[in-house]
Deep mutational scan, measured.
Amino acid sequence: CFKERTRSLLREWYLQDPYPNPSKKRELAQATGLTPTQVGNWFKNRRQRDR
């Protein structure tokens, strides 16, 4: 489970760009304390949910 602060940050970035490039994923990973893989998976799952 991600912290609420982490989730809200991911949601904000998702609204700006649902397909972040690898450098954006690394930047988000540093900002949230997650790994780039976790960030990528979150975006993938979120895109799937929005279908």
Rank of each mutant, 00 (worst) to 15 (best):
K44E: 12
S23L: 08
W42A: 03
E4N: 08
V39W: 02
T37K: 15
K24Q: 12
K24P: 01
F2E: 14
N41I: 05
L9C: 04
G33V: 03
T37W: 07
D17R: 01
P22A: 12
Q16R: 13
R7F: 07
S8N: 13
E27H: 07
L28Q: 01
R5A: 13
K3P: 08
Q38Y: 02
D50V: 04
S8M: 14
C1R: 04
E4A: 00
E27M: 08
V39Q: 03
R26V: 14
S8Q: 15
D50A: 05
E12P: 01
Y14H: 00
W42Y: 07
R46T: 12
P20I: 08
N45V: 06
L15M: 09
K44R: 12
N21P: 14
L9D: 02
A31R: 09
R5G: 12
L15C: 15
R5W: 08
Q30R: 08
K24N: 07
N41H: 11
Q38M: 05
Y14T: 00
L10E: 01
L34F: 02
S23N: 10
E4D: 06
A29M: 00
P22R: 08
A31C: 09
L34T: 03
R7C: 08
G40D: 10
R51E: 11
N45Q: 10
G33C: 04
Y19M: 09
R5Q: 09
N41S: 10
T37E: 15
T37A: 12
R51N: 09
L15F: 12
Q16W: 08
Q16G: 05
E27R: 05
T35I: 03
P36T: 13
L9Y: 14
N21C: 14
L9I: 12
D17E: 10
P36V: 09
F2H: 12
S8D: 13
W13I: 11
K25M: 14
Q30L: 11
L10F: 02
R47Q: 07
K3W: 06
L15V: 10
E4V: 04
R5Y: 07
L15Q: 14
R11H: 10
N21V: 11
W13C: 12
L15Y: 15
S8E: 15
E4M: 11
E27N: 00
V39F: 02
E12T: 09
W42E: 01
L28I: 11
L15E: 12
L10W: 00
T6N: 07
N21S: 14
Q30V: 11
K25H: 05
Q16P: 04
V39K: 00
P36W: 06
R47H: 05
Q48S: 12
S23D: 15
W42V: 00
N21A: 11
R7A: 14
P18S: 07
K44G: 04
E12N: 15
W42K: 01
F2A: 11
S23A: 14
L9A: 07
R7W: 12
D17K: 04
T6G: 11
W42G: 02
Q38H: 02
R11M: 14
Q16M: 15
N41C: 07
N45K: 08
Q38W: 03
W42S: 00
F43Q: 02
R46P: 05
E4R: 04
P36K: 13
L15S: 05
L9T: 11
Y14Q: 02
L34P: 03
K3F: 08
L34W: 05
D50K: 03
Q16A: 12
K25Y: 09
T37G: 12
R47C: 03
F43P: 00
Y19Q: 07
T37F: 04
Q48V: 06
S8P: 02
F2I: 13
D50W: 00
P36M: 14
K25G: 05
A31Q: 13
Y19D: 08
T32P: 03
Q48L: 10
S8K: 14
N41T: 10
Q48K: 15
K3R: 09
E27P: 03
W42P: 00
K25V: 13
G33S: 05
A31L: 15
P18Q: 09
W13T: 13
Q16S: 09
T6F: 06
Y14C: 02
K44S: 11
D17V: 01
W13L: 11
D50Y: 05
Q16E: 09
T37V: 12
R49S: 09
E27Y: 06
E4Y: 07
R11V: 11
T37N: 09
